[in-house]
C-alpha cells in the first residue's frame, strides 16, 4: 500500500508563455497507515503533488510506484488505482450532483462495477464513518449545511474503500467548529480503519495537532520531510518562505530567549503547557 515517488518532475503548459515547473525532482514515500500532512502555500506545488498520487496528472519525468508497481507502465489499471487512492478535492461539495445523498455516495462504488446492494452497503458504511446524520440520507445534497455537504462528499470518496485517503484542504471555508469536526472525524477514521491519510493544509496549527509526519513543499520542491517536531525546529527557515510554525512554538522560543529553561520542541497547546509548568516548577 505504499506510494513511492522517484524524481518526479511536472511542468505546466509546457512550451507556452505560461510554462511553469510545478514539481521539481520530488522523491518521497508514503508508508501504509501513516497520517501525513502536506503543507506549503498557494502555488507551492502541493495540490499538483497529490494529483499525481492517483494518476490524475502524469509526471513529465520520474516514476511513481504504488505497491511496488509502476503506475505509468503500459496496461496499468488506472481506474483501480483511483479506487485505492481516494482523492478528496478542495471544496468537494462542489462535485455533488445526485438527487439524494445516498445515490451521490453510491456514484464511486457504482463506477467500480459493484451491484446496487453492495453500493448501498458501502455508502451506508461511508456515511456512518464520516458521522453523517441518518435522517438526511434521502435528502437532496444541495439542501444541506456547508459542513454536512462536505461530509457527504468525503463519504463519496470513502465509499470506494480506498487504502489511502488524500484530502486537499478539507477544512477550507468552514468555521472553526466545523473545521475541528472534520479533522476529528478524519483522525477517527484513521484510528478506526488504519487507512493511510494524506492531509493538505495551510494551517500549521491543524497539521501539528493531527499528523505524525509533515512534508513541506516550496516552489515545487520538497523542502522538509519529518515529524512535526523536526520540521518546526526549522521555524526560521519556514518563516523565510512565508510559512510559520504554530504560535506556541514561537512562545517557547521566546521563553527560552528570556532565560526560562524550556524545551522548544512543543507544537501543541497541551505540550507547551506541560513543558512550561515543568520548567517553572523546577
Amino acid at each position: 500500500m505504499s506510494i513511492k515517488l522517484e524524481h518526479v518532475n511536472y511542468i505546466y503548459s509546457a512550451g507556452t508563455a505560461y510554462e511553469k515547473q510545478a514539481l521539481k525532482d520530488v522523491s518521497l514515500e508514503i508508508l501504509p497507515g501513516q497520517f501525513v500532512g502536506v503543507i506549503g502555500h498557494t502555488g507551492s506545488g502541493k495540490s499538483t503533488l497529490i494529483q499525481h498520487l492517483n494518476g490524475l496528472v502524469k509526471a513529465n519525468s520520474g516514476v511513481i510506484y504504488y505497491n511496488g508497481e509502476n503506475i505509468y507502465a503500459d496496461g496499468y489499471d488506472m481506474k483501480s488505482l483511483r479506487g485505492q487512492v481516494g482523492l478528496v478535492f478542495q471544496y468537494p461539495e462542489h462535485q455533488l450532483f445526485e438527487e439524494d445523498v445516498l445515490s451521490d455516495v453510491c456514484f464511486g462504488p457504482k463506477n467500480q462495477g459493484l451491484s446496487k446492494e453492495d453500493c448501498e452497503k458501502r455508502a451506508f458504511e461511508a456515511l456512518e464513518l464520516v458521522g453523517f446524520p441518518e435522517k438526511y440520507y434521502h435528502q437532496s445534497p444541495f439542501e444541506l449545511s456547508g459542513g454536512q455537504k462536505r461530509r457527504a462528499a468525503i463519504a463519496g470518496v470513502l465509499a470506494m474503500k480506498p487504502k489511502v485517503l488524500v484530502l486537499d484542504e478539507p477544512t477550507a471555508g468552514l468555521d472553526p467548529a466545523g473545521r475541528d469536526d472534520i479533522l476529528d472525524q478524519v483522525k477517527y477514521l484513521h484510528d478506526q480503519t488504519g487507512i493511510t491519510v494524506v492531509l493538505v493544509s495551510h494551517s500549521m496549527e491543524d497539521i501539528a495537532r493531527y499528523v505524525e509526519r509533515i512534508i513541506v513543499m516550496n516552489r515545487g520542491e520538497k523542502m522538509f520531510d519529518g515529524t512535526p517536531k523536526e520540521v518546526f525546529a526549522h521555524y526560521e527557515e519556514l518563516e523565510q518562505v512565508g510559512l510559520a510554525a504554530p504560535q506556541v512554538t514561537y512562545v517557547m522560543h521566546d521563553l527560552k530567549a528570556r532565560g526560562i529553561p524550556v524545551d522548544t520542541t512543543a507544537t501543541t497547546v497541551e505540550e507547551a503547557a506541560e513543558e512550561i509548568c515543568r520548567a517553572l516548577k523546577r
Binding site: 490524475l56 481506474k79 468537494p92 462535485q95 464511486g108 463506477n111 463519496g156
Partner: peptide
C-alpha cells in the same frame, strides 16, 4: 476541476 474530481471517483 469538477471533471478531475469525478474521474477521481472512477467516472469514465
Amino acid at each position: 476541476k469538477i471533471m478531475k474530481a469525478q474521474i477521481a471517483r472512477g467516472a469514465d
